[in-house]
Computed example of a mutant assay.
Amino acid sequence: MSKGKLAVNILLTVVSIAFPLIWLFSPQMHTLSQILPYIMAILWGLKAMQTVRFQRFFAIFMACLLVFISVTRNLDTMYWYPVIISGVMLFFFGSSLFSAQSLIERLARLQTPELPPQAVRYTRKVTQVWCGFFVFNIAVTSHLIVQEQYQYWALYSGVISYILMGMLFVGEWGVRKIVMAKNNS
């Protein structure tokens, strides 16, 4: 990965994680909340120039959506940003369940090209767990938006969902080590 692509990915990740918290404090940071959609649109535009196929289409879509939000000043639409991201992740993970290799299996084969059948079944189950996480994330975030619980939305979208994601990642890593040890003995 080139340094420019890595920098765009890191900036986009940091801004995406930080923006719910910035949004929460927007009365004190009004100028920042006004320019935040422009910043995010530029980052998505840069990402579009660095990717191909569906990733490019999605990056262009996100850049256009953020420009639309910025121009129309419909900043309430920004609350739906985490839902859109989770929806796209659900699409990637979920659609891979209908292909020969799940997304997690493809990632696992980068490290271990020859996976045994039990590992293939395990990766499919992990992909299903991640789909469940994204459905849960969409449901919680959407509920908080519809109920206009914006402080809880900021806390969930900017902190709790990432903690849950990290716990799922670390938990899966631990379970995988146990499963691998069990299958190797």
Rank of each mutant, 00 (worst) to 15 (best):
T13W: 08
I22E: 00
Q34H: 10
I10W: 06
L21W: 04
L21T: 02
P20F: 05
I17M: 08
T31C: 07
F19G: 00
H30A: 13
Y38D: 08
F25K: 09
V14A: 10
S16R: 05
Q34T: 10
P27Q: 07
V14G: 01
L43V: 12
I42M: 15
S33A: 11
L43H: 07
L43P: 01
A18V: 02
L21G: 00
I10S: 01
I17C: 04
P37L: 13
V15A: 11
I17H: 01
P20Q: 07
A41N: 09
L32C: 04
L6A: 14
V8K: 05
L36A: 10
L11R: 03
F19E: 04
M29T: 11
T13V: 12
F25A: 12
I35Y: 14
A18K: 03
I42V: 14
L36M: 15
A41Q: 13
T31W: 14
M29G: 02
T31S: 10
M29H: 10
A7E: 06
L6I: 15
I39K: 09
G4Y: 15
S16H: 05
K5H: 15
I42A: 14
V14Q: 04
K5E: 11
I42W: 11
P27N: 08
I22Q: 03
M40G: 11
V8H: 05
I17E: 01
I10A: 09
M40Q: 13
L21Q: 00
F19R: 01
G4D: 12
I22P: 02
Y38G: 07
I42F: 15
V15E: 00
V8S: 02
F25D: 05
P27I: 11
L6Q: 12
S16L: 10
L24I: 04
I35E: 08
P27L: 11
I42R: 07
M40R: 06
A18W: 01
I10F: 10
H30D: 13
H30R: 08
I39A: 14
F19Q: 05
T31V: 14
M40W: 07
F19H: 09
F19A: 01
S26G: 02
S33E: 10
L32I: 14
P27W: 10
A41I: 14
I17L: 12
L32P: 00
T13K: 06
M40H: 02
H30C: 01
L11V: 02
S26E: 07
L6V: 12
Y38C: 13
L43K: 07
V14I: 15
S16C: 07
I22K: 02
L11T: 04
Q28F: 15
I35R: 08
L36Y: 10
P27G: 08
L32S: 01
N9R: 10
L24Y: 13
I10H: 06
T31H: 06
P20V: 05
P37E: 10
L21C: 03
L11Y: 01
I42T: 12
H30I: 13
Y38R: 08
L43R: 08
P20H: 05
I39R: 07
V8G: 01
S26H: 07
V15M: 13
I22T: 06
L36C: 06
Q34A: 11
L11E: 00
I42Q: 09
A18M: 05
L21A: 03
L11D: 02
